[in-house]
Simulated assay, not measured.
Amino acid sequence: MEQQQQWRKLNGQRITGPITDQVAKVLAREYEAGNELKVCIGTDSQVKGKATEFATVIVFIRKGKGGFMFIRNDITTQQMRIKQRMLVEVAKSIEVAYELSNTFSRYGVSMEVHADINTNPGFKSNDALKEAMGYITGMGFAFKAKPEAFASSSCANKIVH
């Protein structure tokens, strides 16, 4: 059972229409305002009983002027081991990054995909690090893992916990 919700802003306001159109409007607005943007995409998850909730975020960072984000939640009842869950998180982020990559390129906006995977081998999530890094960089995207992966480990983490 998969439940996919619509994109929304942090204040709960729903984002209507295709996400590519909405992101293009945001990039145009920010460009017109003279803001230099960087975008980070990340996903985090939390097991809640028999369900796993995923939160994917698109974080828009205005250089020197704060930022904002778009959020999407997904819930699944599929049981997963931690490595599989980490790789599903990465796949969800890559799906969004791939869908939006042409829009970011058109506006000259740099983008990173953040994985909520620890670079310290002492953590269970580290088992998925090599696969995640290969998957993200193989798709041509810049990769960040913990502790630099704030889009997934801080922003998405706040939404799903």
Rank of each mutant, 00 (worst) to 15 (best):
residue 95 E to Q: 13
residue 27 L to V: 09
residue 103 T to I: 15
residue 82 I to A: 08
residue 102 N to E: 15
residue 33 A to F: 03
residue 117 I to S: 07
residue 73 N to M: 12
residue 80 M to E: 11
residue 22 Q to C: 07
residue 11 N to W: 04
residue 84 Q to P: 00
residue 102 N to A: 13
residue 49 G to S: 10
residue 16 T to I: 05
residue 117 I to A: 06
residue 21 D to C: 02
residue 31 Y to F: 10
residue 88 V to W: 00
residue 59 V to M: 07
residue 40 C to T: 05
residue 38 K to G: 09
residue 40 C to H: 15
residue 74 D to S: 12
residue 45 S to R: 04
residue 95 E to M: 05
residue 99 E to G: 02
residue 96 V to K: 04
residue 67 G to V: 05
residue 55 A to G: 13
residue 49 G to Y: 05
residue 100 L to N: 00
residue 40 C to R: 14
residue 63 K to H: 12
residue 92 K to H: 11
residue 21 D to E: 14
residue 79 Q to H: 10
residue 77 T to L: 10
residue 98 Y to K: 14
residue 12 G to W: 03
residue 42 G to D: 02
residue 87 L to Y: 07
residue 79 Q to N: 10
residue 118 N to A: 11
residue 53 E to D: 10
residue 9 K to T: 06
residue 8 R to T: 09
residue 65 K to Q: 14
residue 79 Q to K: 13
residue 23 V to F: 02
residue 56 T to C: 12
residue 38 K to D: 05
residue 37 L to Y: 10
residue 87 L to I: 10
residue 28 A to T: 10
residue 56 T to I: 09
residue 43 T to N: 09
residue 64 G to K: 04
residue 73 N to P: 00
residue 73 N to Q: 15
residue 91 A to W: 05
residue 75 I to Q: 14
residue 12 G to L: 07
residue 82 I to K: 14
residue 58 I to N: 08
residue 52 T to H: 03
residue 79 Q to C: 01
residue 9 K to Y: 13
residue 26 V to D: 00
residue 43 T to L: 04
residue 54 F to L: 14
residue 63 K to E: 15
residue 97 A to L: 03
residue 101 S to G: 00
residue 89 E to I: 04
residue 73 N to C: 13
residue 99 E to M: 12
residue 119 T to Q: 12
residue 10 L to N: 08
residue 45 S to H: 11
residue 78 Q to N: 10
residue 50 K to Y: 02
